[in-house]
C-alpha cells in the first residue's frame, strides 16, 4: 500500500528496492501496568518481532521519497491482554543538505498503524506526523533527533488520545564493532495510568481512592490477570537511557538498551525498560 501510494505521488521516479529488514527483541519492564507508586506496579517480559520492507524513489540529487510497510508482533509473558499485532505504512521525504555522510539529513513524513490487541479494548488505529534530522559530528559520532505528532483512536476511549514527542540520540562508534548510544526524550499528551481495583456496590473502583479525583476517562480493564481500572490522563514523560550495540557482521547488530521513563502529571509513574534486540538488514 505504501509503495502504491509512493508510486502515485512520484509516477516518474524509479523505485529502488525492496529493502528488507527484521528484528527480534526481549523487553523487560518493571512497570508494565504503568501504575503510580502503590500496589499496582507489575513487571513483565515482552517478546517482540517485526519486519519491514521499503522502497526508495529519487526525487532529485539529494531528495528521496521512502515508502515502507512494517509489521510487528508483541507477546507479553505475563499479561496476554497486551499481546498485539501492529501493521502500518510509512511515507517519508528525506533530504540531505549537501552531499556525503557529513551532510545534515532531514526528513518529514506520515505514518499509520493499525494494532490489534488480545484485549480488544486496546485495539487502535494511529496516525503520525514524523519529522527529524540527523547530523554526523564525525565519522564515529552522529546526532539524531526524531519527532512525532500522533493521534490514536482505540475501541475504549481510555486508550484514545494525542501526543507530541521528541527523542534525541547520540551514537558513538567506539570502533568498527561497538556502538554506544545515549538517549533523551520528551513526550506530552495523553497517557494511561493503571490502578488495582475492587468491586464495590457502585461497580469497579480503584483501591487508591485518590484516583477517583483524577480528571479524564477511566474504565475497568481485563488486560491483566487481576482487576485494574485504567485512567487516561494528560501528562508529560521525560526519558533517558543508553544502549550498547555491537555489530555482528556487516548487516546485523545486537542492542542492549536501558531506558527510564518518568511520567509527571496527575498520576505520575516511572517505568524502567531493558531490552535486548537483534536487528538485521538484508
Amino acid at each position: 500500500m505504501a509503495a502504491a501510494f509512493a508510486a502515485a505521488l512520484a509516477p516518474s521516479a524509479q523505485a529502488d528496492g525492496p529493502y528488507y529488514s527484521d528484528s527480534a527483541s526481549v523487553i523487560w519492564e518493571d512497570n508494565a501496568t504503568t501504575a503510580p507508586p502503590g500496589d499496582g506496579i507489575r513487571s513483565a517480559f515482552t517478546f517482540a518481532s517485526g519486519g519491514s520492507v521499503s522502497w526508495i524513489y529519487s526525487l532529485g540529487f539529494s531528495t528521496l521519497l521512502v515508502s515502507s510497510m512494517s509489521a510487528n508482533i508483541q507477546v507479553c509473558s505475563r499479561f496476554s491482554g497486551l499481546d498485539n499485532l501492529a501493521l502500518g505504512p510509512r511515507l517519508e521525504v528525506r533530504h540531505k543538505v549537501g552531499v556525503g555522510p557529513m551532510a545534515l539529513s532531514l526528513y518529514a513524513g506520515i505514518g499509520g498503524t493499525a494494532a490489534g490487541y488480545s484485549d480488544p479494548e486496546r485495539s487502535a488505529i494511529e496516525g503520525t506526523l514524523l519529522f527529524g534530522a540527523s547530523q554526523r559530528l564525525g565519522p564515529a559520532m552522529q546526532l539524531a533527533v526524531d519527532g512525532r505528532l500522533g493521534s490514536y483512536d482505540a475501541r475504549d476511549v481510555v486508550f484514545t488520545g494525542n501526543y507530541a514527542s521528541v527523542l534525541a540520540a547520540v551514537n558513538i562508534d567506539l570502533d568498527q564493532t561497538w556502538r554506544l548510544k545515549l538517549l533523551g526524550g520528551w513526550r506530552a499528551g495523553d497517557t494511561v495510568a493503571g490502578y488495582t481495583a475492587y468491586k464495590s456496590s457502585y461497580g469497579w473502583e480503584p483501591v487508591d481512592s485518590d484516583a477517583l479525583n483524577l480528571p479524564g476517562a477511566w474504565h475497568y480493564v481485563a488486560t491483566y490477570k487481576e482487576p485494574f481500572v485504567d485512567y487516561r490522563v494528560s501528562a508529560r514523560t521525560w526519558s533517558c537511557g543508553c544502549a550498547l550495540s555491537p555489530a555482528v557482521g556487516r548487516n546485523t547488530s545486537l542492542t542492549l538498551q536501558y531506558m527510564r521513563f518518568d511520567t509527571v502529571g496527575p498520576a505520575p509513574y516511572i517505568d524502567n525498560v531493558v531490552s535486548l534486540s537483534l536487528a538485521h538488514k538484508y
Binding site: T46, A48, R136, A247, S253, S277, A279
Partner: peptide
C-alpha cells in the same frame, strides 16, 4: 574510522 554499516534496532518501544 569508517562509518558503521550494521543496522540498529530502535530498541524497545513505549
Amino acid at each position: 574510522r569508517r562509518i558503521r554499516r550494521a543496522p540498529e534496532s530502535d530498541g524497545a518501544g513505549y
